[in-house]
Write a protein that binds this DNA or RNA. Structure first.
Lengths: 198, 198
DNA sequence: GTCTATAGAGAGATAGAC
DNA sequence: GTCTATCTCTCTATAGAC
């Protein structure tokens, strides 16, 4: 998994490398010099494309990470025969990805979100927007499956909490066991509400 | 909530202040100068008590945070009429604490754990020990309540994932809604297994 | 737009007086 | 054990040549 994707434009190389380093090492733990060295890109290019510096770059990393993960969710759900199966598939795929990257890559925004929630208000707001984007997608899918909206919102919050908590536990314990358990719990939680209209 | 607890010994003031700053700002985001300034304590005292510097200090913060949270869990569970009620109470209390600290204080180790999982192996191992400590406590309580051990382990992982995920969502969304949903989900998950022997 | 050099601040760590 | 001063390194950010 070489970090330098040489055929991409400079701006994208910086953006993708930033995303990788931020999600693995966090915001404060990643230096701009490290990003441009690994991209690779001249240091000055970073300030050419993001005049607002580190915080502006991180805000875009959070937004694009949110869009990417939403697209992944949509693709997996649409490929599944039904929503319940799709949610189970999503947890299974998450566990496979975490293990395949040697427990480095999990949620695209969680590491940064936890670190800056109390210290960088613009980045906290960007992270909140992303979480609400994901919650909205799952909530709408549940509503489409005849779950009442208030209950769909509550279930979405629990499913996302299970996923995020499992990501942290998998990376820390270096095991996929938490993701397997969380996926089973997510399916168990959804089953009564989704079977009601089957 | 003054950070300086003047009557405590220097070592404890540094330790408690470090715990507060690490859980709110993360490991890389917290400077040793900031810790000794806020404790308050002379800068040299930090290296007197922790010759290994920042990493040795953080390792002790993780361990003591783990012990503190375990004691809190034990107190809440023991005060409840039964395990199911106790778990619900724990989530309720967690939500209250997060809100009462203006969404700053949540899990004592999660912020650091997520940040250093891929970069500081000794701290990752210390965080893993703490998570296993908590998982062991809940698993034993479930086994005592007649839940088969393998199932108790799986449920413990799901409950802890729900808690950690809800902590992150509450801090990022600045709302207790995720903790309320996660608490309800935790109770719903446990109910069939705990009612089986009732 | 690309790239290098460097400014200015702050980091972690150490030495040594008291 | 307490406390100050300082070393060296790295950080974010900027200036300016090309």
């Amino acid at each position: 998994m070489p970090a330098a994707e040489t055929q991409l434009p400079t701006r994208d190389r910086i953006l993708f490398t930033s995303a990788e380093l931020f999600r693995r090492q966090g915001y404060a733990g990643t230096g701009l010099k490290q990003i441009t060295a690994q991209a690779p890109a001249p240091f000055g290019s970073l300030y050419h494309f993001w005049p607002g510096g580190k915080e502006e770059l991180a805000a875009e990393v959070i937004r694009t990470g949110g869009d990417f993960f939403l697209a992944l969710y949509r693709a997996i759900i649409d490929a599944a025969p039904d929503l319940l199966t799709g949610v189970g598939d999503f947890f299974t795929g998450a566990g496979e990805t975490v293990a395949a990257t040697d427990y480095q890559d999990a949620c695209p925004i969680a590491t940064v979100a936890g670190e800056i929630a109390s210290t960088h208000e613009p980045l906290r707001a960007a992270s909140a927007d992303v979480f609400e984007l994901w919650l909205g997608a799952l909530t709408e899918d549940l509503v489409t499956a005849e779950v009442p909206r208030a209950r769909a919102r509550e279930l979405s919050l629990s499913i996302l909490a299970l996923l995020e908590g499992a990501f942290l536990l998998c990376r820390t314990l270096r095991s996929t066991e938490p993701m397997t358990a969380a996926g089973a719990a997510a399916v168990a939680l959804l089953t009564p509400d989704l079977e009601a209209d089957a």
